[in-house]
């Protein structure tokens, strides 16, 4: 029984990790006031280019870097359109997802059915062998730790650094931030870039670690889950981890329930994270102060400098 619980938690952590990356990136972008609905597309782009890089060179680290860079590049298309040319963020984000789906399918044609050496779980003698906590603390793949680290750094950055506060100020009141003299557009570019890089990394995690292969549309909606997750976490990095484990975990629990023959309908369990998101939305919209505290006030609004 303990063995099953440990194993299930380990599997849940790998299911949560791509969500942690993508949601952390999106959270930072949204905190600066930009709503980028292209997460799914950027993940796919990161996944296919990361995989292609490893297939061609055999270097897993290079694959991750390529995933990050291509995700970042895709987000820059979005940034130019929405921040410099002031196009509608929702429509542009959706377009980015459709573009990413198509582009990744096209680029991926040559890589379907290929396989690579997977990035494996770490093993530290003695520590990993400790009973119970050993594998839970020291037995994941390196990216799981990276995800938690990035999440912690993001939390620290947003809450305790000067630039983090400026970023939040830009998201809460772009005009005031501009009046004081902060470069609103430049800061938003940086936030969107971080969002793209993290989505790309999340995608590369799927194709390099989760299942070492490329398949068309392999993110299967995880980008949308990451978007829901940001709202679910009410824009707090600490809650993103909880949400990611919950959202990723539900899938694993659903399969676990089936394998154990519990007879709970699979579709019911898969629905739960979305219901939870709606419940959270309803709860936070009832309390006006809380929204003001957490949700970026300028989310989704284009910024035009008024002089």
């Amino acid at each position: 029984m303990t063995e099953l619980i440990i194993a299930s938690i380990m599997t849940m952590m790998t299911a949560a990790t791509p969500l942690v990356f993508a949601a952390t990136g999106e959270l930072v972008a949204e905190k600066s006031g930009v709503l980028n609905l292209g997460v799914e597309g950027m993940m796919l782009i990161g996944a296919v280019f990361g995989f292609a890089a490893v297939t061609l060179t055999g270097e897993p680290l290079l694959g991750l870097a390529v995933g990050i860079l291509t995700g970042l590049f895709a987000s820059m298309i979005f940034a130019v359109l929405t921040l410099s040319l002031l196009s509608n963020q929702v429509a542009t984000g959706l377009a980015l997802t459709i573009f990413g789906t198509g582009l990744s399918a096209l680029v991926g044609l040559d890589y379907v059915g290929k396989t690579i050496e997977q990035i494996r779980a770490i093993y530290i003698p003695v520590l990993t062998d400790l009973p119970i906590v050993g594998r839970l603390l020291f037995g994941h793949d390196p990216l799981v730790y990276a995800g938690i680290l990035i999440l912690g750094l993001t939390h620290w950055f947003l809450k305790h650094t000067r630039w983090g506060m400026i970023l939040r100020a830009v998201g809460d009141s772009d005009q005031s931030a501009h009046a004081i003299g902060y470069p609103v557009i430049a800061i938003r570019y940086a936030a969107v870039a971080f969002g793209g890089a993290m989505a790309g990394l999340g995608g590369a995690y799927l194709s390099l670690v989760y299942t070492p292969l490329w398949a068309e549309h392999m993110t299967a909606g995880r980008g949308w889950i990451a978007l829901a997750l940001v709202v679910f976490a009410s824009w707090r990095p600490t809650r993103v981890l909880l949400g990611a484990v919950l959202f990723g975990g539900i899938t694993i629990l659903q399969l676990n329930a089936q394998a154990a023959g519990l007879g709970i309908p699979a579709s019911f369990m898969s629905m739960l994270p979305y219901i939870a998101t709606i419940v959270v939305l309803v709860l936070i919209s009832r309390d006006a102060t809380r929204i003001r505290l957490n949700a970026p006030a300028c989310l989704g609004r284009p910024f035009r400098a008024e002089r």
Binding site: T11, N256, Q258, A266
Partner: peptide, 27 residues
């Protein structure tokens, strides 16, 4: 024989999830 229904013919991450869960349960 433990059976998991994934309701798809082709969804690699989900197929991998199902395999992991089944191995977690002792397969």
């Amino acid at each position: 024989v433990k059976v998991v229904w994934v309701y798809t013919w082709f969804d690699p991450p989900k197929e991998a999830d199902a395999a992991k869960v089944l191995m977690d349960q002792g397969a």
